[in-house]
């Protein structure tokens, strides 16, 4: 009787679906999404002041109205992005999440999962486990996130952080690096949002945790 009660009790606590995305992940994810969108939209307005390529971004999708306003937004949202990003990196390493979720990434696994994904045979039954393509993309976008912050810092403080500028090969190259990282993030965002909508339970997990 007693033992039965105990096992019942255990069954009850185990019964609620396991947490796929812990609360800290969900929190930093949405703060990051918000900060990133502010950074990208104000960044487009800043780009328009001196375009690197033969196009500018439509005023309707930029933030700040003019260069001065966009810079205010960019240099305000950067704190949110950077502090939030540092918390994410620190907790990602400290909790072992990066190691457990993102490693190992093998070429064979990536090729096999890419094929499976393109033929719609990839399983999404266990959202707590990333497939190889996810691992590669998530590890990649984290790296891009680090590079875009570093290239941004080097453009913001090219004298005080001149060693960082040298690391990128000069001020002008840092601008192209910063732009390229933005383009990669936007490309990631398109795929990421599209897939989240295709597999709605993954979106639910990022909102309520399971």
């Amino acid at each position: 009787m007693t033992s039965l009660a105990v096992s019942d009790h255990q069954a009850e606590t185990a019964a609620p679906a396991k947490v796929i995305q812990p609360v800290w992940v969900r929190l930093v994810h949405w703060i990051n999404a918000f900060a990133m969108i502010l950074m990208i939209m104000s960044g487009w307005q800043i780009y328009n002041a001196s375009p690197l390529f033969g196009f500018t971004f439509s005023h309707s999708i930029t933030l700040g109205g003019w260069l001065g306003g966009a810079l205010l937004w960019h240099f305000a949202a950067m704190w949110l992005l950077m502090v939030n990003g540092l918390i994410y990196l620190a907790l990602g390493f400290a909790t072992g999440r990066f190691r457990k979720k993102l490693l190992p990434i093998t070429p064979g696994g990536v090729i096999a999962d890419t094929k499976a994904a393109l033929t719609f045979k990839l399983s999404h039954d266990d959202l707590s486990k990333y497939n190889s393509v996810q691992k590669l993309l998530y590890a990649g976008i984290i790296t891009v996130g680090v590079v875009i912050v570093l290239s941004g810092l080097s453009m913001w403080k090219p004298v005080q952080l001149h060693w960082l500028v040298s690391l990128f090969g000069g001020y002008d190259i840092a601008r192209y690096v910063h732009f390229t990282c933005m383009a990669l993030i936007v490309a990631f965002l398109v795929i990421h949002v599209a897939l989240a909508l295709l597999v709605p339970k993954s979106l639910r997990a990022m909102i309520i945790g399971r």
Binding site: F34, S42, T62, L63, G65, A70, L72
Partner: peptide, 9 residues
């Protein structure tokens, strides 16, 4: 700058 707020993100 202000307009950016309401039209923006």
């Amino acid at each position: 700058i202000t307009a950016g707020t309401s039209l923006g993100a």
